[in-house]
């Protein structure tokens, strides 16, 4: 269809598309812009777009007042930690399912998927009680476990679809060449699967970073990540929009960048390989 477009129509369509795109992006743009304003300018009517005194004060204050760094550290520890633990479990599992399938492999995969379909409220009560009784509430360890288990099915699935694309001939060749199983996995499978493993890790970091059911319900202070930190802005005291914006910008920036880099691989993970 597109090759029939006139140059003028092409430009017109591009302008239209950019307007739509910018509208969708506007809330993020506005958030970032507000983070550089003073609190007074942030609520001023009409809103100021460029002609305001740019300030970095809010960023300094977010850290000074609420110890932003500690929450950010928790977010990093929780998302990276749960992803690493997840890999430790998911790589062998996906390897087995991709290269040593049995009659029950398909059922096992679908069962894993079905656990992901379970709404978290269905298990909120027992998990909360177990955490309370075992002293896991508001601990990083407890949350890492929860986030790891929450995302394990996605990890196994994603790795499984990537491993499936590696011809089993190559692994058999390694076996003929005398490689033992650990050597086969370390020297042959993993180097070939690096891109798949990397995108699996990225998706999991994103999902864990943004997870806002368990992190809100199972933490209070010590282990609370950025989701909970931002949520604390929902009960405002005084003027806070610039600070909220600064804190929010800091909270989403790393994930936005990771997400932009891995957007193409994400589709596969998010749809369990149903759309590639």
């Amino acid at each position: 269809m597109e090759n029939k477009q006139t140059p003028l129509g092409h430009i017109g369509f591009s302008i239209f598309a950019w307007i739509v795109g910018l509208l969708i992006f506007f809330p993020i743009f506005w958030m970032v812009l507000t983070s550089f304003k003073t609190e007074l300018e942030a609520v001023s009517i009409p809103p100021s777009f460029i002609s305001f005194d740019w300030t970095l004060e809010n960023y300094a204050e977010v850290q000074a007042r609420s110890d932003y760094f500690r929450f950010a550290m928790n977010s990093v520890i929780l998302s990276v930690g749960s992803t690493l633990v997840g890999l430790l479990f998911a790589v062998p599992c996906a390897w087995a399912m991709a290269f040593n399938p049995t009659k029950r492999t398909k059922d096992a995969l679908l069962w894993m998927l079905s656990t992901k379909m379970m709404p978290p409220v269905g298990v909120l009560v027992p998990i909360y009680l177990v955490f309370r009784d075992w002293g896991l509430l508001d601990t990083r360890f407890g949350l890492i476990m929860v986030l790891f288990l929450m995302n394990l099915p996605i990890m196994v699935w994603m790795l499984y679809t990537y491993f499936k694309e590696i011809p089993s001939d190559i692994l058999e060749a390694a076996r003929m060449d005398g490689a033992t199983l650990p050597k086969e996995i370390i020297f042959v499978l993993l180097p070939m699967a690096v891109p798949g493993i990397a995108s699996t890790m990225l998706l999991n970091i994103i999902l864990a970073w943004n997870e806002a059911f368990w992190t809100l319900n199972l933490t209070t202070a010590d282990a609370a990540p950025l989701t909970a930190f931002i949520a604390s802005y929902s009960s405002p005291e005084g003027l806070f929009w610039s600070k909220l914006s600064a804190a929010s910008t800091l909270a989403v920036a790393p994930i936005l960048i990771i997400g932009w880099f891995s957007q193409k691989q994400l589709v596969r993970g998010l749809t369990f390989g149903a759309v590639k």
Binding site: P27, I28, N210, A231, Y233
Partner: peptide, 13 residues
């Protein structure tokens, strides 16, 4: 981009 914004940020913004 909006997909990567954490839900609490999304809501408060």
């Amino acid at each position: 981009a909006p997909f990567f914004i954490m839900p609490t940020v999304n809501a408060l913004v």
